[in-house]
Design a protein around this nucleic acid. Sequence first.
DNA 1: AACCAGGACGTGA
DNA 2: TCACGTCATGGT
Length: 235
Amino acid sequence: MIKIHGSQVMDIYEKLFSLYGSQGWWPLMEHHGDNPTKTGSIKGYHPENYDLPKNDNQRFEIMLGAILTQNTAWTSAEKALFNLHELGTINPEKMINMDLDDLKEAIRCAGFLNQKSVYIQEITKFFISLDGAVPTRKEILTVKGVGDETADSILLYAYKKPEFVVDAYTKRIFYHLGIIEDKASYRGVKELFESNLPRDVPIFQEYHALIVEHAKRYYQKKPHGSYDPLMELIE
DNA sequence: AACCAGGACGTGA
DNA sequence: TCACGTCATGGT
């Protein structure tokens, strides 16, 4: 990762924040009905509130959402979460006793039901074993179904740990801007952000959410990034 | 009617 | 390490 691009990392953050404002991630069921303006779902976000989650059940909810949204639109993951909520199983003790086939049906709308149902069982066992402790990144990564991005999402949004989340949109945007290589590694991109940003949880939380919001507007259909307003900040 | 969605895993170079 | 196929459903 090239060092001369360091200051651009912060410049781009400020530009995105001025464009879209506080994103209120991670969305939580309790905040359905709040009133953010963003693309896609308008439910669950809590702009300018950095005190969430406020209990273990909400941490568990974030973990479930992080798995359900893997390679899947949040609107679909959210429907699955709502089904689980109706069944009263956004609760580790209830979830661990839930019938596997019932779980599959509840999350079918989020896709990959055979894998994700097992992943959910795995992370539920892991969460119970924590017994309230804060997991390390290495520990979370031992759970089947939790890769780099899901681990960082859980640490950043459920545990407020300063771990930058890199997703496909992040790579797509910053490749288009000429800041990273075509096949940059997850860790390489993660380190680019973490080494050029204050180690501040709200900034990490907002930045990743802003990248997703920006990508939904300019990087979904090809050609990616046409008329991206961020291009003004390059060279 | 292809293509993509807030990826991860298993396999074989 | 790294590239590639696979996993499922829903929206555009």
